[in-house]
Amino acid sequence: MPSQGFRDWLAAGKPYALIRPARALQRNLKRHGLTVYDYPDDDHLEANTPEDHTPFSVTGWPSANARWKARGLDVMPRNDSRAARKENADIARQLIRDRDAGVPGVAWIKYINWTDESGTCRQERWMPAHTTRSSTDKGHIHVSGRSDADDDPRAEDYDPIARMDGDRGMSVHSDSILEAWRLGAPKAADGSEIEPVKWRIRDEAWQRSITAALAGAAADAKSARIAIEALVAAINAGGGSVDAAAIIAHVDALAAAERDRELQLLAEVAELRAELAAARAVAEAQLSPAERAALPPH
């Protein structure tokens, strides 16, 4: 049966406002092409105990939630591939690390539900200390906000994917590209990998080259940000008035577009490499052992 809060919400004309830090995280994740839901579906709205997706949640902490403020997000994987599920889990891990480390941009988070690569779903709570328990809210990252953080401005520039990129050489993206390559690895007639040792060596070498290249791009972006902030500080100190955030946002948008183009090219290269390897494997299968032994190494 729908709650009294739901009936009050209907009578009030269905007011709805997502709290500021949740809007910021949603916006920053969407810039990476992710789907991030906030508005409640009918199951949320008509639940006996309405929770944080609704603007009449009764699960506020550390105090009651203000009406008509919603404070729940669902960060969805890009698709159902293993790489996409890993990316989603890695985003959750970054949120958890940052929340534990006291990063201001995630201080508003009350709890998250997330699913790891093996399908295990957990809830990480900071109410107030960090505790972990099992959850059934599988397949995405659910983020719920505290009741005392409705207007917290500190999440405006918080981007967990950018933080992963800077901390780990953008490996979340290279993992996704390498996943496409692995799926194209040549197989023998019995389904086993052809030359598994050589394939693994090539795979690892290529991963190192991608990671190094993308880490360099991340370092360049960080250097550009530092230079812009220093220049703006000097201008403002001299009596000027320049908005560093607007300039950095524009530069970040250009950098993101360029990075997307580079990743697309890398994905296309991975696909071509996989197709060539598979074609060579098929051709080699038709050769005699002596002819195969005479082939140059690859």
Rank of each mutant, 00 (worst) to 15 (best):
A70H: 05
W68K: 02
E51L: 08
A47S: 15
E51Q: 12
P62W: 06
G72D: 02
G72E: 07
H53A: 06
L73C: 08
N48K: 14
S63T: 12
A70N: 02
L45I: 10
D52R: 12
W68Y: 15
A64H: 09
P55R: 01
A47K: 06
N48Y: 10
L45G: 02
H53L: 09
E46M: 14
N48D: 15
G60T: 05
R67I: 13
R67N: 10
R67M: 12
S57G: 08
V75G: 01
P55D: 07
R71T: 11
F56I: 06
V75W: 00
K69T: 13
D52F: 05
E46Q: 14
P50F: 08
N65S: 11
T49L: 10
G72A: 06
W68D: 06
A47M: 08
G60P: 02
F56H: 02
F56Q: 07
G72M: 00
V58E: 08
P50T: 13
W61G: 04
F56N: 03
D74S: 10
N65F: 10
S63H: 14
L45N: 03
N48S: 15
T54N: 02
L73R: 03
E51I: 06
P55W: 02
P50S: 08
K69S: 09
T49H: 14
G72I: 03
R67T: 10
P55Y: 01
P55G: 09
R67D: 14
T54Q: 07
K69E: 15
H53W: 04
G72T: 09
S63V: 11
N65C: 11
V58A: 04
N65R: 14
S63N: 13
V75P: 00
G60E: 04
R67Y: 15
P55H: 04
W61Y: 15
S57L: 01
L45P: 13
S63A: 15
P62E: 07
T49E: 11
E46I: 07
S63F: 09
P50E: 07
S57W: 01
E51A: 13
H53D: 03
S63Q: 14
L73N: 04
T49F: 13
G72N: 00
V75N: 01
P55V: 01
K69C: 11
V75E: 05
A70I: 00
R67C: 08
R71P: 00
S63D: 12
R67F: 15
D74M: 09
